[in-house]
Nucleic acid binder design. Structure first.
Lengths: 348, 348
DNA sequence: TTGTAAGCGTTATCAG
DNA sequence: CTGATAACGCTTACAA
């Protein structure tokens, strides 16, 4: 390993000049810089990160702590996000420090990373309204950006999608198709996005004077089995829903299984609209029938949040780093007119 | 931020003694150590990682670079592995540095991490026979452990499952059920595990004198659509297979879709056995019908490889860090006796 | 058992 | 434009 001092000696320069040349400082002569660059190349000089970091106080690391439920582990959507994020940082100098922590140990892990001071900033996702992780980072003065929002207009840097608008649009489509008994299979209760989605759904139901009985709204994790369980229960009832809104294509898969067992044909006897983060290994258009979805690939959030993080580190103020994107509604075969027998609205 | 010097002053000791006390050196007096520990607590002392690392040359970071295909991104199974790995490192001092890189840029990323010297070791997965990544790490003398094997008896530390035995057992079961036309939907061609699986399958087919026409073996990525495509093609032929072996439950989902479109009933007209890494959000037992699988949760590899990595860093020799686990064959509803019409072996 | 002092490889300050 | 020199915060011989 050649050090900056060796390189300097080799060139007949001081370490200081070499450092300046290498780091693009303006005051260094153009000929000198050229010489230094060539020398560095020739001697295979690689700056020692640890020394650099000790001297500058910057670590070149951005931390991200994912949530894991104890039974099901990490939501498969997040891998897609992580992947896009990593790719987006690829040609910067930044590397990603990743933790996966059960909900119960989230704070512990944040404490650890924060107090060690080993990251320049943090990215966090799936915030709740009064998220203690956010409070911690703010208190410790660690720059952070958030994937999602805990509340409607938070005072931190975030990127989110318009969950409320998406679910309002989906509900509206179903109502236009004549559906009156529409059930919602939502994500976990405390999550910001789950609240936003429920709000969009309820607003449109209200608007059309359609009742929302409590048993038509379920909260659960976003996997096949949770979709199956909730749908099976609801479909067993005589006043069953004629349409489902759900939060993930995996849940939709479970709804389809329940529908199959109940002898219902999806797209005719039963309509389904799912939110689609786009899991590349299980595409909504390949469902049988193809799924109608509110679509916003979660991977698109990667480059956006990476850019936000870098801007934040460069000092861009928070209010310039808040963004919400619209969501597309894509109609496919899993939705259709309400069946005749279900034409009546559910009543207490 | 309190430094070790401040803490030392506060206690009337030298930084050296404080350092020794904190790092558990034996020579320090028991009373002194107690005092130091309390003082550190009181002043909220946290050692500066960068300084520590500059002094010791260790980074406390283990790197992992995942492969991503350009169209489908990262295999969803790996998130589960990453998650287990991170959990396993949680109460060590080690943190995980994660990259996701397209196959085409794997070497670039390895170069980058290796030359910066910012990790103490690397974990890598899905090796191929003469994997250039492994060659690079070996040449640079960076300790590493591997998830999977590129060859049967590699000279590096690895953890793998008995893919060959698993697929041999699965093939045997199908043959016992009377199947003669058995197709294999494998993972990507170059991967070690894909080769191992094909070998297990072919060995048992040979053993029973059953031919394996080229069109009965497909290699592809492990997602729903690849399973669908391959199965649809094979099922369209008049001498179609009566049973499928596949590499992932997502592929099995695709096979089921193709079977449905061909009017075949899975478990009766067509048998399916899949390898099951256990995706927690899509369980094989919840398929319709439930899927017969060779089962080995990929998450189990997390703690094993974490322990191996730490052992490797502590100097345990490579030959003591090589392990292969058996795989369970779990029979469920997707397998059954070969249909009568398919009783004849395929012939050229 | 504890202290002194010399690194570890950079960057940053201040002269020149 | 370039060069000394002092940090940066910790570890580790070596001395006591």
């Amino acid at each position: 390993m050649t050090t900056i001092r060796q390189l300097a000696e080799h060139l007949g320069l001081s370490p200081a000049t070499v450092s300046r040349a290498l780091n693009g400082f303006p005051e260094v002569g153009v000929a000198t810089r050229q010489r230094v660059l060539e020398g560095a190349e020739r001697l295979h000089y690689r700056p020692n990160m640890h020394a650099k970091r000790l001297a500058t106080g910057k670590s070149g690391l951005v931390g991200m702590i994912f949530r894991a439920s104890s039974e099901r582990g990490v939501d498969p959507h997040v891998m897609d996000f992580l992947s896009a994020l990593s790719l987006a940082f690829a040609d910067s100098e930044i590397d990603l420090l990743v933790h996966i922590a059960p909900d119960a140990q989230q704070m512990e892990h944040h404490e650890r990373i924060a107090s060690r001071g080993q990251v320049d900033g943090m990215i966090l996702s799936a915030p709740e309204p009064d998220d203690p992780r956010i409070e911690l980072l703010a208190r410790r003065n660690i720059p952070f950006v958030v994937h999602g929002r805990g509340t409607d207009a938070p005072d931190y840097a975030y990127y989110d999608i318009d969950n409320e608008g998406a679910f309002a649009a989906a509900t509206r489509l179903l109502i236009q198709f004549g559906h009156k008994r529409i059930a919602l299979l939502n994500g976990p209760q405390p999550m910001g996005y789950a609240r936003q989605r429920e709000r969009g759904y309820r607003a449109v139901m209200d608007e059309h004077g359609l009742p929302v009985p409590p048993r038509f709204v379920a909260n659960g994790e976003m996997h096949e089995e949770s979709g199956y369980r909730a749908a099976a229960t609801m479909l067993a009832d005589r006043a069953r829903p004629t349409a489902f809104l759900c939060s993930s294509t995996l849940q939709a898969l479970g709804i389809m299984r329940a529908a199959g067992e109940a002898g219902l044909k999806v797209g005719e006897d039963l309509s389904i609209i799912s939110h689609d983060d786009v899991l590349p290994h299980l595409l909504a258009e390949n469902f049988a029938p193809p799924l109608t979805v509110t679509r916003q690939p979660i991977r698109d959030a990667g480059p956006i949040l990476a850019a936000m993080m870098m801007a934040r580190l460069a000092g861009t103020p928070v209010r310039e780093l808040q963004r919400t994107d619209k969501v597309d509604l894509i109609v496919r075969g899993s939705t259709g007119p309400a069946p005749k027998w279900g034409g009546e609205a559910w009543s207490r």
